[in-house]
Simulated assay, not measured.
Amino acid sequence: MSGVPVDVLIRRIDPAVPLPSRAHPGDAGVDLVTTRDAELAPGERALLPTGIAIALPDGYAAFVHPRSGLAIHCGVAMVNAPGTVDAGYRGELKVILINLDPRETVRFRRFDRIAQLVVQQVETVRFHEVAELPGSARATGGFGSTGGHPGVQTPYAAVSPGGGADRKGQ
């Protein structure tokens, strides 16, 4: 990490919205707020506006992450976490929140913090099609193939490339 800040252009769609900022020195993300009041009943989701749009430099993307405090204290999660903001996107940043608490309604007020934004450099890739991939120690093992919680059994049958069910671990 170079420590040199990356310049990101920002436009306030809502002129009163505070600019995103870090809560503490060294934090990876900046706080995003909502610009409108909202109530989420148990199981309900909503698309909340942040009042800002950004222009990232080529080679960068921003990722919208959930806030851990909302998760533990209110049962609020992001439906598509993390949300990806591509360098070419110029629209308002919006956050899809869901209330996972089975009993309590969650209320958001204007300028409540609802997510955090992390800007990262991303690589441009070229794909090269091959008939076979090189081997590795992991091979095709995934979805709990390294073990898991002792009380959890695999609740599904993964379909193998040949079309049959892979019942490994059952």
Rank of each mutant, 00 (worst) to 15 (best):
M1T: 12
S2A: 14
S2G: 14
V6H: 05
V8L: 02
R11I: 14
D14I: 06
P15F: 12
P15M: 07
R22H: 15
P25T: 02
G26K: 00
A28K: 05
A28T: 10
V30C: 12
L32Q: 04
L32Y: 04
D37E: 15
A38V: 15
A38G: 07
L40H: 10
A41V: 09
E44Q: 15
R45A: 11
L48G: 01
G51C: 07
G59T: 13
G59I: 10
Y60A: 00
A61Y: 08
A61V: 08
F63Y: 15
V64G: 01
V64D: 01
G69L: 10
G75T: 00
M78N: 01
P82G: 00
G83W: 06
T84D: 01
Y89I: 13
Y89S: 11
E92V: 02
L93P: 02
K94Y: 08
V95N: 01
I96R: 00
L97W: 04
I98T: 00
L100H: 09
L100P: 04
L100D: 06
R103F: 13
R107P: 05
R109V: 11
F111C: 09
R113V: 03
V119I: 15
Q120A: 15
Q121K: 11
Q121G: 09
V122F: 04
E132Q: 11
G135S: 13
A137I: 14
A137F: 13
A139K: 09
S145E: 12
G148K: 03
V159M: 13
Q170Y: 12
